[in-house]
């Protein structure tokens, strides 16, 4: 019994020291990592919906989307930004999708993936200045019904040797845009009228004040 207990305790002591040291390092790097992710997310959102200047996050049930407005007053909606999650080859791929008001894709940007280096990672060639990010650019202007890889009868050319990655991105984008369409579609038609009523009310109050 003692033969097992003593080495076990020693090993545990090493484990605790290692755990504490890592806790320390983690507490130093965690805010930095979170800040990096947030900055990357914001940059991606602005990238995929360049016409918008003000963004507002909204949630409908467990579905989260961002509405982009053309100006500070939030009078005109420029489009939407949603995040699509797709199960790729060796990671869950996160794609930020900019959507126009007619629910075609404005632009997409893949913000997180850890697919096979050199294969699936070909989807993200934005970092490489010599290459056009052709895979991402293919999505521009497509309605959700056309977003599918060519092997499945869609309009997208998939990445050589990385069909799973291509398909995962395409499917997740199509599904998420569809979902946005059903969630926002109805309220979009009502929203402008509501705002018109609101603004007329405002004006009326001002006018009344003026009359008095």
């Amino acid at each position: 019994m003692k033969d097992i207990l003593k080495p076990g305790l020693i090993l545990m002591a090493y484990g605790i020291i290692a755990g504490l040291a890592l806790g320390l390092v983690n507490s130093m790097t965690a805010p930095k990592i979170a800040a990096q992710e947030e900055a990357a997310r914001m940059a991606a959102i602005e990238e995929v919906l360049p016409t918008a200047t003000v963004f507002e996050t909204k949630t409908e049930g467990d579905f989260e989307y961002i509405v982009g407005y053309t100006e500070e007053s939030k009078a005109e909606i420029a489009g939407f930004v949603v995040t699509a999650l797709g199960n790729g080859f060796s990671s869950t791929i996160r794609t930020v999708v900019g959507v126009n008001t007619d629910f075609t894709v404005a632009a997409i940007e893949i913000v997180y993936q850890s697919e096979t280096p050199g294969l699936g990672t070909k989807a993200v060639e934005l970092d490489d200045p010599t290459k056009e990010p052709w895979f991402e650019r293919q999505f521009d202007g497509l309605p959700p019904s056309d977003i599918n890889v060519d092997k499945d009868g869609g309009k997208l050319r998939s990445i050589t040797g990385a069909t799973i990655t291509s398909r995962a991105i395409a499917r997740s984008v199509a599904i998420t845009v569809e979902k946005l369409k059903t969630t926002v579609g109805s309220s979009l038609e009502q929203e402008p009228t509501e705002e018109v009523i609101d603004s007329t009310n405002d004006i009326e109050i001002v006018e009344e004040g003026g009359v008095e």
Binding site: G15, A18, G19, L22, V25, A30
Partner: peptide, 10 residues
């Protein structure tokens, strides 16, 4: 989650 590597290998 940061302890994942060390936990898994052990």
């Amino acid at each position: 989650r940061f302890l994942e590597t060390i936990a898994f290998i052990l």
